[in-house]
């Protein structure tokens, strides 16, 4: 993936510099931030707990029968 290069560059930039840049933007107080985070995770957890649809199990089970070396 082409994203790799950007990431390596990003690591070189010191965190303090980035944080400094962030102070120009509106920032939430930590109470609100926590509430948003809690709601987000609650919504997400519910999605994570949904059963995996059969189509994915079937798709991966086919790997048993088919060699990946020869994609159709």
């Amino acid at each position: 993936m082409t994203g790799e290069k950007g990431n390596k560059l990003a690591r070189v930039i010191p965190e303090e510099f980035l944080d400094e840049k962030l102070t120009a933007e509106p920032k939430l107080d930590s109470t609100s931030q926590k509430r948003i985070g809690d709601q987000l995770r609650a919504m997400y957890d519910e999605l994570m707990q949904q059963p995996v649809p059969d189509r994915f199990k079937e798709l991966l089970e086919q790997l048993d029968k088919k060699d990946l070396e020869t994609p159709e």
Binding site: G3, N7, A10, I13
Partner: peptide, 18 residues
């Protein structure tokens, strides 16, 4: 890494999203 952008960009997007 996943989004192919700088860490600062992600921080800023998360911050604005919240």
């Amino acid at each position: 890494h996943i989004c192919g952008c700088a860490v600062g960009t992600i921080k800023s997007r998360v911050n604005r999203a919240r």
